[in-house]
Design a protein around this nucleic acid. Structure first.
Length: 509
RNA sequence: GGUCCCAUCGUCUAGUGGCCUAGGAUAUCGCCCUCUCACGGCGAAGACACGGGUUCGAGUCCCGUUGGGACUACCA
């Protein structure tokens, strides 16, 4: 990578657009049923760029692949965006509604001599391609129909021969050259571009054409998309020029790969790469956004945790990395359901965000698990928030509140005891079978049930039965929470309250 | 195969020719804190793909090799 590329990157963004012109970007997913993290990342960058410049984000569904696009498929995408907090200003527009316009553009190209009708059949083409392959030559459409005389064309048309429309790529030594806002100057020689098809034999326009026509109509000023669009950009530029449309600024972003360096996809990774997977597994939307924005982008002072405002301030194409990045998921890892850094970021927000902002998320988890009680939002709200605050530092996912948090929010006595905890804190000291119920009686009689008094009582009790305080303390923790680990015991005791604590202490184990 | 793009710790990355004995984050390990586990604090280990140039000096510039990725459809 050359370093001078960096220098003009920031200027370039402004260069393509004078100040009187609106910044308009678009996110144009095909309706695959759900938003995957690669798409989400693209959407995020577009959204940030629009918001940063007071521009507009247009949502366009590229649904021309009819079989694949259903109402539900589209909804999956929209839900994902909405959950992430990405809002758009126009749309969703549907590419399929503009097919006539795409066809009209092709007619215009035909009329202006920028395109031509090609009567070669698929079979002929395949044969030529095969021949080239056996000869180890590289194949490009040979332009047979480009040389057809008007008479020959008329003749074939009269005979009802089907045809596709091909773009007439300029001949000679020239090249298409453009400056990408991330990748710098990209150049592709005409001779390396074949006369590509823009309209099928059945009259359906191809993506390359549709995309350009749509972007031009929607007055897109900056095309921010995955690097997989980089190779097609020269062809699209040819189309823009032939159509007499102004070029947008192109900004391609590196791709997101899996640990085997393959492009992440629904096929090979399934749910793991779906935004809704993260939603269902207890991610905070902003934590995901924050993580995703860092996948391929960074800022000079290495800041990693951003508020929305900070991100708007900091974001720039200057920080885009041109190298693809790896989304570090290891299926089968019992400890990490996804990239450890993503989880860490989620945990960071869980333990540091304002309690009132966390509250609705925890509530939703508890509701899902049947642990929610209305009083948590009413007379016990203060207790609820304090309890959330007490346990959140060791949770990584919102779902932890419903699983690991169960002993805290449920008033059932027979809380399940983890095997490891039972072994280490209960079984190891058989005396606890007598001591713990006895301790329950003593706690019952305590004048004041405060952390201080409970602690004093327990330590005194430990001294009486001649064991280290830890034996009693850990035994109590295990019996009243079922867990090996957790907050300080006396805080737990205070949160659970006397009745629950003594009840759980008296159960046999 | 052709074209284009890319290459710094396991992963995300800083790096704009001397501030680099290569910095941060995460993950891992250790110590401190402590009733446990986290959090927090401190520390350890861990990278410039390779080879040539250019230069007084190269992670940084150039060339090559290797490796990876994308594009290359009458898919989007």
């Amino acid at each position: 990578m050359s370093q001078d590329r960096r220098r003009w990157r920031s200027c370039l963004v402004l260069e393509g657009t004078d100040m009187t012109e609106e910044i308009r970007v678009r996110f144009a997913p095909s309706p695959t049923g759900y938003l995957h993290i690669g798409g989400a990342r693209t959407a995020i960058y577009n959204w940030l760029f629009a918001r940063q410049h007071g521009g507009k984000l247009i949502l366009r569904i590229e649904d021309t692949d009819a079989e694949r696009s259903t109402e539900e498929m589209i909804k999956g995408i929209l839900d994902g965006l909405e959950w992430l907090g990405i809002d758009w200003d126009e749309g969703p527009y549907y590419q399929s509604q503009f097919i006539a316009e795409h066809q009209e553009a092709a007619r215009q190209l035909l009329a202006s001599g920028h395109a031509y009708k090609c009567f070669c059949s698929k079979e002929e083409l395949e044969a030529k391609r095969e021949l080239a392959r056996t000869r180890k030559e590289d194949y490009r459409y040979d332009g047979t129909c480009r040389k057809l005389s008007p008479e020959e064309i008329a003749e074939r048309e009269a005979a009802g021969q089907p045809y596709v429309i091909r773009m007439k790529v300029p001949e000679g030594d020239g090249a298409v050259t453009f400056t990408d806002a991330v990748y710098g100057e990209i150049s592709k020689r005409y001779r390396d571009i074949e006369d590509f098809v823009i309209v099928r034999a059945n009259g359906q326009p191809l993506y390359l054409l549709s995309n350009v026509v749509d972007d031009a109509r929607d007055r897109i000023s900056h095309v921010i998309r995955g690097q997989d669009g980089l190779g097609n950009t020269p062809k699209q530029i040819l189309l823009y020029n032939a159509l007499g449309k102004k070029l947008p600024v192109f900004a391609h972003m590196s791709l997101t790969l899996d640990p085997k360096r393959a492009k992440i996809s629904k096929r090979t990774h399934g749910e793991l790469v779906a935004v809704h997977f993260y939603r269902e597994h207890g991610f905070l939307p902003w934590a995901l956004v924050n993580f995703l924005v860092l996948l391929g982008w960074s800022n000079p002072d290495s800041k990693e945790i951003f508020t929305y405002e900070e991100l708007l301030e900091a974001f720039s194409f200057d920080g885009m990395n041109r190298a693809n990045s790896i989304f570090n998921v290891n299926k089968n890892d019992p400890k990490f359901i996804t990239d450890p850094k993503a989880i860490n970021m989620n945990a960071h927000y869980i333990r540091t965000m304002p309690l009132e902002e966390l509250e609705p998320y925890v509530r939703a988890e508890l509701e899902k698990a049947g642990l929610w009680r209305d009083e948590f939002a009413g007379e016990r709200r203060e207790w609820f928030l304090r309890t959330v605050d007490l346990i959140r530092a060791r949770y990584h996912l919102l779902t932890d509140f419903a699983t690991l948090g169960r002993p805290y929010f449920s008033d059932e006595v027979e809380i399940e005891i983890e095997a490891k905890a039972r072994k280490k804190n209960l079984d190891k000291f058989p005396g606890l079978r007598e001591w713990l119920p006895e301790l329950a009686d003593r706690l019952e009689k305590l004048a004041e049930f405060t952390p201080e008094r409970v602690e004093a009582e327990m330590r005194a009790f430990a001294a009486e039965v001649e064991v280290k305080p830890g034996v009693i303390i850990n035994g109590v923790r295990t019996l009243i929470t079922g867990q090996l680990a957790g907050p300080g015991l006396f805080e737990i005791v205070e949160t659970l309250g006397r009745d629950l604590v003594t009840a759980r202490l008296r159960r046999p184990f």
